[in-house]
Design a protein around this nucleic acid. Structure first.
Length: 543
RNA sequence: GUGAGCGUAGCUCAGCCGGUAGAGCAUCGGUCUGUGGAACCGAGGGUCGUGGGUUCAAAUCCCAUCGCUCACCCCA
């Protein structure tokens, strides 16, 4: 096996891809019913865009993005040492024409490159014919060559671009670029597509993964917007077959656990919605300091990872799953008790609006978002059957992000659904339901595509008739398979069955003679003869 | 980046304390030249992930390496 897919990426084959289409189609329909339009975004952007929105010092930007230099196509490879002279000429010219950035750094690098290369060229003239190992001149000769190469590589040939790790930044960029703040009302957009992260893959976490997301951008931060976004999200999960937990189920858990969320058990089936408010620029920093102080008090009860996070990102300690730390975490101050008046009111109204909409939710004070741009409302949805990565959707409010990216003051809220995980959860659920026997066949036979009619023709004379009727049937909207080569009749019917066709249309000498088609229903073997017109009518009525 | 587990046919796997590679499913052909799912018979398909070592002999033992998987870190 010579070629294989790159680590962390995968193919999605026919029986499964149908499920993907169904899920994505459901999203389109549900989102459209809430007034969202689709935005199709580029798959890569300037690295700077993600760096700014997500934060320069985050892991995401530091090591988890696919980033590369977008150098002009006309430049030769700098690695061809033999052609270093040609390369110098090419770079010189590209710098002059502005094809590569006219930065001070580049000017210097090129200048030094030229100088070192000149020395190298002069030195190489002095070399005796025929190299000999160990000649002292060779050392200097190579040293100059390597210096030249070093400075050649120091030239920044183009902008840095990155495969998108998420789409919110792109949406905001597009919002600004197209002046969408002048659009009437709130701008409601959804997107569907792949994202990229350069991490070790694990269950439900791939290097190319898929998201379905939506964003609302505009002047208003009304709690009803947050609530409607979440309502839509839950409507989507319900339509797709992973309805939220039952109200009674959640209530009983709530009373068991009191106001604490650490003991919460997700409902036995379907998805669970968790919400929280993480405050704003005013109240969150104050809370973080309180939290840090509390953590320092208990520093000895924490493990190494959490101890480190006390410094780097105290909020993350709340995410810890280590059993030993749970008792400490329980006693920590909770952000919902430390919100400023505006945030408290906002959060209360969001909850009220959710109840108004019949959305079942659990409050989780430990639900924090890793990125600075989030504020106030945050939410997350988990699903069963996923392993360690059990969140299928995350989202929150990010007022200020658009402004940070150079746009007008703008409020925003959005979410992203992890399609890979959603599908995984749906598959788990299916397995449970069917006991895992039904799909075995599909997995082996490859792609059972929905096939209405298999045209079993025999004899060269029947082939044209087969082609013709297939075209007619396809035109009428049926899916039709016609063997490209003549087959033994028995094989033909057998293949029709294996492909999962609903009907076999039989065309042989007899049928040609009578000008009719024999239509055989594969499910029970029932067979009838039809003229072309009757055939169409019959097929249409029986679908 | 860190840790653990696993690499044998297209898929799922067996192969004991070393003796020269197997099953089921799938595929293809036949029994069966105008009627499928079944049955029976047969065929193709494997440098046992790769490289090295030990040995008369390695899928099996040892080392290295690559790959996959799960988890940690991180989480968009």
């Amino acid at each position: 096996m010579k070629f294989q897919a790159i680590k962390g990426v995968r193919d999605i084959l026919p029986p499964e891809s149908a499920m993907w289409n169904r899920v994505e189609q459901t999203a389109r329909e549900v989102f459209a019913s809430y007034g969202y339009g689709e935005i199709r975004l580029p798959i890569f952007e300037q690295t700077e865009l993600f760096a700014r929105s997500v934060g320069l010092d985050t892991d995401i930007v530091q090591k988890e993005m696919y980033t590369f230099e977008d150098r002009p196509a006309t430049l030769p490879e700098p690695r061809a040492y033999g052609a270093l002279g040609d390369y110098l000429v090419a770079i010189d010219r590209a710098f002059e024409t502005g094809e590569i950035p006219k930065t001070e750094r580049n000017r210097k690098a090129i200048q030094t490159f030229r100088q070192k290369f000149g020395q190298f060229a002069a030195e190489s003239q002095k070399l005796p014919r025929g190299f000999a190992q160990g000649q002292p001149e060779l050392k200097d000769y190579f040293a100059l060559l390597f210096e030249a190469i070093y400075f050649a590589q120091d030239v920044q040939l183009g902008d840095f671009v990155s495969l998108r790790p998420e789409a919110t930044a792109s949406v905001c960029r597009a919002y600004i670029e197209h002046g969408m703040h002048t659009f009437p009302g709130n701008v409601k957009l959804y997107y569907i597509g792949p994202m990229f992260r350069r991490e070790r893959p694990q269950k439900g976490r791939y290097r190319q993964f898929y998201q379905i997301g939506a964003e609302v951008l505009g002047q208003s931060d009304a709690p009803a917007i947050d609530a409607e976004v979440i309502e839509m999200l839950m409507a989507f999960f319900e339509r797709v077959g992973l309805e939220g937990g039952q109200k009674s189920e959640i209530r009983s858990q709530k009373s068991e656990a009191g106001s604490s969320t650490s003991d919460l058990r997700p409902p036995t089936s379907g998805v669970t919605l968790y919400i929280n408010s993480i405050g704003c620029k005013e109240c969150r920093p104050k809370y973080v300091e309180k939290l840090r102080a509390a953590l320092i008090e208990h520093i000895n009860e924490l493990k190494a990872d959490s101890q480190r996070r006390v410094e780097t990102n105290p909020l993350r300690v709340l995410d810890s799953k280590l059993p030993d730390e749970q008792a400490v975490i329980e006693k920590l101050p909770r952000i919902t008790d430390h919100l400023c008046e505006a945030c408290r009111a906002h959060y209360a109204e969001v909850k009220k609006q959710l109840e108004l909409r019949g959305v079942v939710f659990l409050e989780n004070w430990r639900l924090v978002r890793g990125l600075d741009y989030y504020m106030r409302t945050t939410f997350e949805i988990t699903a069963p059957g996923l392993g360690a990565q059990n969140a299928v959707c995350g989202g929150g409010r990010y007022d200020g992000l658009v402004e940070l990216l150079g746009g007008p003051p703008t409020r925003g809220i959005g979410f992203a659904i992890g399609t890979d995980r959603l599908i995984l959860s749906l598959q788990e659920r299916e397995k449970e339901k069917e006991g895992g026997q039904a799909e075995e066949q599909g997995a082996h036979t490859g792609a059972p595509r929905p096939l209405d009619v298999f045209v079993a023709w025999m004899g060269a004379a029947a082939q044209p008739a087969a082609v013709k009727i297939a075209r007619t049937l396809r035109g009428a909207g049926f899916s039709v398979e016609v063997p490209a080569e003549e087959m033994k009749f028995k094989k033909s019917i057998g293949l029709a069955d294996k492909l999962g066709a609903r009907y076999a249309l039989i065309i042989g000498e007899n049928e040609l003679k009578e000008g009719k088609f024999a239509l055989k229903r594969l499910s029970d073997g029932h067979q009838d003869a039809f003229s072309e017109a009757d055939l169409l009518a019959h097929l249409k009525s029986s679908t």
